[in-house]
Design a protein around this nucleic acid. Structure first.
Lengths: 185, 185
DNA sequence: GTTGTCCGAGACTTTGGGTCTCGGATTCGG
DNA sequence: CCGAATCCGAGACCCAAAGTCTCGGACAAC
């Protein structure tokens, strides 16, 4: 049933798909959908989570490289069909506090925690400033990508993510550290 | 007529107000509204622009202070009733490309140009890195504020804007400059 | 005074999310 | 093995609000 939702959303986009279509495709009554989800947007969110959750795993040891890879993955996701889903969900979240909370708790927080883990590791190894505020740093790193996703004033690319990181890095890194980040392309 | 729209939107919020209400309050037929604007969202955008455009003027000479003041103003605006308008417009822009373009061209670009001017001035005076990419820098400075506005994972405050600037500043400033930014609170 | 244009008023259409109802199938109790 | 209660697909229905169409009165032009 979620499968049908996922397929349709991928095929038509989240805006174009209707609840009736999902119900029909799943061979299920509309009422049954509303038995499990409170709104269409919730269904889409579950589809998004199922579509994007398989991720973590192997990160480089270098904090710089790890963060860079994570940012690139996010930029790639934003630029893909999933970015469209995210845009739609953020849009619907304005003016639906329950959905907004759900989005933050079930999608946003998970990914943010992964980013936070990398930064905390970097603090522990001394690659990042000891007094770094992780929350602030995450906003600074990923805020630009979200801005590009939601306002669309510039194309979203992995190169853009790299530029953001390089621009911000001097404010994050432990200036006493001798290890300059080696830039591998 | 725009006055009525502005008043109603301020009073009830952009989501709750209907075109019929605006028409009634302006003592005008609905058709007449659609003679000038293509959609309800467009009306709201004009109201927003009228509500927020009076701004520029006196900035401190110090680039750091100037940018800080501009960021604080944006944070203040985001936290006010106008922030609600902006959220709504960004939401409606997803899935309405014409509105999205209008939003970028008539609201976003203007404010961005002011920020760019400050940065360019800073480059010219040597306070900022000569090779700074202004577009990238603007995304990095304001992206976090937009993220907080649209996702709502953290409270939006002027203090948050200050923290963003301080975190990012080392990557923007001309490291050869002797003038450390003096932090006035 | 007649004709034409403009526009307030409000009825109407449309669209899609969400609810209600029916009837058949499946399951449980005796 | 049979009656009763539950579940659920199907689809009719409701509702709100954006956007369109139509009427009729007011004013202007000639």
């Amino acid at each position: 049933m979620l499968d049908s939702a996922r397929d349709l959303v991928c095929q038509l986009g989240p805006r174009a798909v209707t609840v009736d279509q999902i119900a029909a495709a799943a061979g299920v009554g509309k009422q049954t959908i509303y038995r499990w989800w409170p709104s269409k947007s919730s269904v889409i969110m579950d589809a998004l989570i199922e579509l994007t959750d398989p991720d973590p795993a192997d990160l480089p040891d270098s904090t710089y490289e790890a963060v860079r890879l994570q940012m690139r993955r996010v930029a790639g996701m934003f630029a893909s069909r999933n970015g469209e889903l995210i845009r739609e969900l953020v849009a619907d979240s304005q003016g639906d506090p329950a959905l907004a909370k759900d989005f933050r708790d079930r999608f946003f927080a998970h990914r943010r925690a992964r980013g936070a883990a990398s930064l905390e590791k970097g603090i522990a190894t001394g690659e990042l400033r000891a007094d770094l505020d992780v929350e602030d740093a995450l906003d600074v790193l990923y805020g630009p990508l979200w801005l590009q996703l939601l306002v669309g004033h510039r194309p979203l690319s992995q190169a853009a993510a790299d530029r953001v990181l390089d621009l911000v890095w001097p404010g994050l890194k432990n200036s006493k550290s001798r290890l300059a980040p080696k830039k591998t392309t």
